[in-house]
């Protein structure tokens, strides 16, 4: 079926372009004028202005380790996260907790816990798989460094980023 496109009949002013060009110039001029006085600009100047307050509840940022209300590491070095990690970003070196330690009943804790942030894909599988609720994805997204070595988060950094998390956390409640 033939489709008939009705071409509107243009007036002389429309055919000689100039009036509509002037109208267009007026529009862009108004935008220019407003933007010079810093009005109506939509750009967000990133490092100075951030949108952190508007991050969604379910945002998956950098993975971190948390300690509990007793000041104990929650991680028991079961290495499930190391095994599930798709890009193999996590490296754990477990150690036995000595007999005379207060938490010797836990038996194992990580001696070293490294997450290579150049490999991490922020999938959150480590958080999901962790039986002890020790690893959480937080809202830090700006992970930068000047070398590859700097981009590896060791145990200390991970605990510092993670902070303290108390009580039992159910999987899909607001604390996540």
């Amino acid at each position: 079926m033939a489709l008939i496109v009705n071409r509107p009949k243009l007036s002389l002013a429309e055919r000689c372009y100039l009036p509509s060009i002037l109208a267009g110039l007026a529009i862009t001029w108004n935008h220019l004028k407003r933007a010079i006085f810093n009005k109506g600009i939509v750009t967000m100047q990133y490092p100075e202005e951030k949108w952190d307050a508007n991050l969604p509840e379910w945002y998956r940022g950098a993975p971190t380790l948390v300690s509990d209300e007793h000041g104990k590491d929650r991680c028991v070095a079961c290495q499930l996260c190391e095994f599930i990690c798709p890009p193999r970003a996590i490296t754990i070196k477990p150690m036995e907790i000595p007999r005379d330690d207060k938490w010797s009943k836990v038996e194992k804790r990580p001696e070293e816990f490294d997450i290579d942030m150049t490999r991490c894909i922020y999938c959150g599988l480590c958080e999901e798989v962790c039986p002890e609720q020790a690893i959480y994805l937080r809202k830090d997204y700006s992970i930068t460094g000047l070398s590859r070595a700097e981009m590896i988060h060791d145990k200390e950094t991970l605990y510092k980023l993670g902070g303290v998390r108390t009580g039992l956390v159910f999987k899909w409640n607001e604390l996540k």
Binding site: H31, A35, T43, Q45
Partner: peptide, 10 residues
């Protein structure tokens, strides 16, 4: 710079 201003950018 001018193109940015015209397009409401910086």
């Amino acid at each position: 710079r001018v193109s940015a201003f015209i397009q409401d950018r910086v």
